[in-house]
Design a protein around this nucleic acid. Structure first.
Lengths: 242, 242
DNA sequence: CAGACACCTTGACCTGGATCAAGTGTGGCG
DNA sequence: CGCCACACTTGATCCAGGTCAAGGTGTCTG
């Protein structure tokens, strides 16, 4: 942190940040943004680099301010479970007691805002509303995980991939997707990560994509670019309705 | 709520409760227990009855004060994922935004302490520490779920059951189990629930128990009563180390 | 103490997805 | 423009765990 910056600069750093709108920082008033900025620091992580290590002492929280990251856990023999993907506005670090319960790795360049636990403690002491906001965030995540467990424990490969596609459709601010017409989405993560996210192998993911393509449920252009041709039916498949 | 009870009675209701030690109620000082009691109410649910319904508006939090419950989600065609078992001291209801993300059903009689959201709001306003405690609870749960996802997405049946057995060993206050000598545990839930918890079928659970028995890893007396004969090795299996 | 019900175990067989093994783009770079 | 490297796709085969179908076992009831 450059201590010679004016309080106005600090304020500016937060006021135009995506976290200001989408993330926990919206628990704080405009006039207090300088305090928020002074308790946090910006950082960037380049693709493939990890910035949270499962099992290491949890010292910081993070807000993703740009780019994407994947979150995952490992078994001793290398089996991997991707537990989530994070993008602009997402808050990371709640899933930890003393040490982090997951690792996080940049998916092609992320920018982050880092809040040391001590800073967060000062912030929550000063802005009680923030603590409530953190709990809210944890509750939202907890509800999502409930659905993820059902996916991993009980859904078929077909249903898992359909669920994944529908998940990727939600607009900004996590709005529910409109399923009436075709939807274009990007899949910025490699197939391997999709497989590890869905508890499948890369081959099964690939085959199931091909299947969906042959059934005219989706069309694929250039690996990362996918159009859901019949979102409603995909959504039905996701819910195990066919 | 019986409004004619004296404040002392109210105090007594909380002071000897298991939640006082183990659960979120330990965020509140002895002298304030009457307030806590006045914002909550006791209730009991008999075996097989459900008291939280997935998708219904989330109005209450619960502390389990006795007995056990299972938490689960359903797919439209009836496939079930048990997402957890709750017992004395556990706090329920965080996994919800507007509506509950799971259902909860008594496993042979539970007693509960119910906190309507409005009451909890008054309590957190008065005892800021409580809000922090709730977040802590959510974080603990979030960390557990991370491990659960790895189990469901990446572990074999053998590893899942071993993990389940080790989980059941933790002493009071969630202390880490001592694995050096045999450990006796009770499994108060039917095999069906274990299967739905581990993302397996009842047959596979049964077969794997028999396998463990033949390998002298466990001994079974009367279905619910199990002794882990070699906890250390079971723990190794659980972690995918053999 | 028989009979019934609920739950668990075991066996035989099947299958969805894993594993193993080639291909087939496609983007980067000389 | 051509070659390489890497990521994805596709095909052939295999197997862990699911499904289907009998038996056990314990417990409650009359």
């Amino acid at each position: 942190m450059s201590s010679f910056r004016s309080s106005d600069d600090m304020h500016d750093r937060c006021v135009h940040c995506i976290g200001r709108v989408d993330s926990i920082c919206n628990a704080i008033e405009d006039c207090d943004l300088a305090v928020l900025a002074s308790e946090s620091s910006k950082m960037t992580v380049s693709g493939g680099r990890s910035f949270i290590d499962e099992g290491s002492p949890a010292h910081d929280f993070f807000v993703v301010t740009g780019g994407r990251a994947k979150l995952f856990t490992l078994l001793p023999d290398g089996r991997r479970q991707v537990t989530g993907f994070a993008e602009g506005g997402d808050f990371l670090g709640l899933a930890a007691s003393d040490s982090y319960a997951f690792s996080a790795e940049a998916l092609g360049g992320v920018s982050l805002c880092r809040f040391p636990h001590a800073s967060m403690q000062r912030l929550t002491a000063r802005f009680p509303n923030l603590e409530h906001r953190l709990r809210e965030e944890a509750s939202r995540e907890l509800a999502l995980m409930q659905a993820r467990m059902t996916l991993l424990g009980r859904k078929t490969a077909r249903e898992r991939l359909a669920t994944f596609l529908i998940e990727r459709c939600q607009g900004p601010h996590r709005a529910a997707p409109v399923l009436k017409q075709p939807i274009e989405i990007d899949l910025p993560m490699p197939r391997t990560d999709i497989a590890d996210y869905l508890g499948l192998t890369i081959e099964t993911v690939s085959r199931t994509f091909s299947l969906f393509r042959r059934e005219k449920l989706i069309s694929v252009r250039g690996i990362t670019h996918i159009t859901l041709l019949d979102p409603e039916r995909i959504s039905a498949i996701a819910d195990g309705m066919e």
